[in-house]
Write a protein that binds this DNA or RNA. Structure first.
Lengths: 145, 145
DNA sequence: ATTCTTGCAAACGGTTTGCACATAC
DNA sequence: GTATGTGCAAACCGTTTGCAAGAAT
């Protein structure tokens, strides 16, 4: 996981059906060697050190492309815009990937102990399970995955 | 939970230390009687049917205020801007409420069966646990909760 | 009377888009 | 040579902000 050279990265891009450019290489490497889940802006600043002529637009387009072919993950936001809920006690949500609807999915956060390793040093205030998928109405007409 | 009248709603607002206006009443009622987790825009359109002079800015300010005093919940987005991750296999995330940093929190989504009732009709593609709290560096200097 | 809220419009910031030029294959 | 990607700048859209007028206590 450490000793990856340019050839490996190029192969990875090709394996995902992507045309290889040095911009894509730089962007993927920058992301690969970061544990921080950086934003597009942060990646842009990082890559710019080596390639000052790169544009922020390219970073956005490239990340979106990477995400489309499954090379990287988009951590958040879950929905494009903020959504509100009059129900204040903690509960889970099911978000439809097609129509963006959100349904409640049970009220078991408090009871249900989600045991995870390696959270020493992290003080948990809230925990929420987000289920992404297709709701009743949208099932069937899903293109991706 | 059904037979709430205006007086009840007014009391609820007062209980949360809020000054009562008909705009706030309308916004809260609109949200209260919706299971859809609507966006600010949707709430605006809804309320506008009864009060055509209301402004979108007021809806935003009001929802933010409601959220501050704990009257409603903001479902998403978890972070303000999109964040990316070269690690593609499903795993949980810890999001710091202070510095917005994101750490991985284990890779147990696949194994860990999160059993929830009432998800018939919903086809789950991904499930993710989001832990919100304070990271090592930010612990202590937290103002809210 | 004072403080808080509203409405309007402008500003803001992250993201997307259109297009001419450049590059990968 | 053709299709695809890049850079730039403008557009876009959800959200926030500033301020004067209005309403709540």
């Amino acid at each position: 996981m450490e000793g990856k050279n340019d050839k490996d990265f190029i192969a990875t891009l090709r394996d995902h059906g992507l045309q290889v450019t040095y911009q894509r290489l730089a962007i993927y490497q920058a992301l690969y060697y970061t544990k921080n889940h950086p934003s597009a802006e942060v990646i842009y600043q990082q890559v710019r050190k080596r390639f000052p002529m790169i544009s922020l637009g390219t970073v956005y387009k490239t990340l979106e492309k990477f995400f489309e072919v499954g090379l990287i993950q988009k951590v958040s936001p879950i929905t494009e815009v903020a959504r509100y809920d009059a129900v204040t006690h903690p509960h889970h949500h099911m978000v439809c990937l097609e129509c963006q609807s959100i349904q409640d999915a049970g009220e078991y956060v408090g009871d249900q102990r989600i045991t995870l390793p390696a959270i020493e040093g992290f003080h948990v205030v809230r925990q929420q399970v987000v289920l992404q998928g297709y709701c009743k109405g949208c099932k069937g007409n899903n293109g991706d995955n």
